[in-house]
Amino acid sequence: MGVMTYAEAARLSLEQEMDRDPRVWALGEDLGPEGGVAGQYRGLQQKFGPERILDTPISESMIMGSAVGAAICGTRPVVELRYADFGFCAADEIVNQAAKIRYMLGGQVRAPLVIRQSVGMRNGMAAQHSQNNEALWVHVPGLVVIAPGTPADTHGLLKAAIRCDDPVVFLEHKELWATSGEVDPQAGPLPIGVARLVRPGADATLVTWSSTLGRALEAADALAQSGISLEVVDLRTLWPWDRDTVFASVRKTGRLVVAHESVRVGGFGAELVAEVAQTMFPALKAAPVRVASPRAPVPYAKPLEDMCRVSADMIAAAVREMLPADPSGPLAGT
């Protein structure tokens, strides 16, 4: 084991997959000289050459469109879109081509490619560099959607994404690039579609992903001070999401909170809440709750940006609110 950052883990993962499979290559803006916005490609062009780490013009349509063409002709491209917000410039190629080509062509061909997009708020990047767009991609049949929240998960899930024969949208959070964690450099791919039970608890289930995981764990610590035991599940893969783990947890606790940084309205939390309510309504002790961003663009000024952030306090407050109020103890009578 070793300690490395989320960005280093991503870099190592891609390097190992490129060593393993000569069909794997990456393309995007600023991969060579800059090494990617967070250094997640640093040194790879020197090692693999300018054809396999391809520096492209600012041409999102062609970065994505050519990747689909190259994927259906025997290679496994890793697409770097730099910011998830720029993914919209390539939305046609993602939605109309990558996601559907296998189906439209009657299964003649597959499009094994990874679409990397850095998501989320970080240090005042404002409305066009801070978005979380996971719900849009989950809505598109044909796509797998992954959003790792730790360096180890980034390392293992990027490997899995590269080896996957379906197109995978891989969402990396800008706020996580510099965070560190334990990573086994020899570890293989992690399974897609399997959540991680990060912290066991008894009173409520908190389902989250990506950078909100850290806030969920802070909230769990704070709640523990008041004797409330929060179970934290990191979904890791948003499509297909791990129903077994989520359902088992909610069956145990009877309460569900979903927390995510993206907009609450039409967000992926709504899907989780609806599925849980439909599947196990009698097991619920309280109405499920979503903690997420208001339906507003992300503003620049710090005090305004903070209004759009999901904080540990907000998560903790939501959990407290769904528990029965009783002066003799948070769980008395349940």
Binding site: W25, R52, M62, M64, G65, V68, G69, A70, C73, T75
Partner: peptide, 12 residues
């Protein structure tokens, strides 16, 4: 666009 990618694959 797909043809561009196909040509890129041919080259790679």
């Amino acid at each position: 666009s797909l043809a561009v990618g196909a040509a890129q694959a041919v080259k790679l």
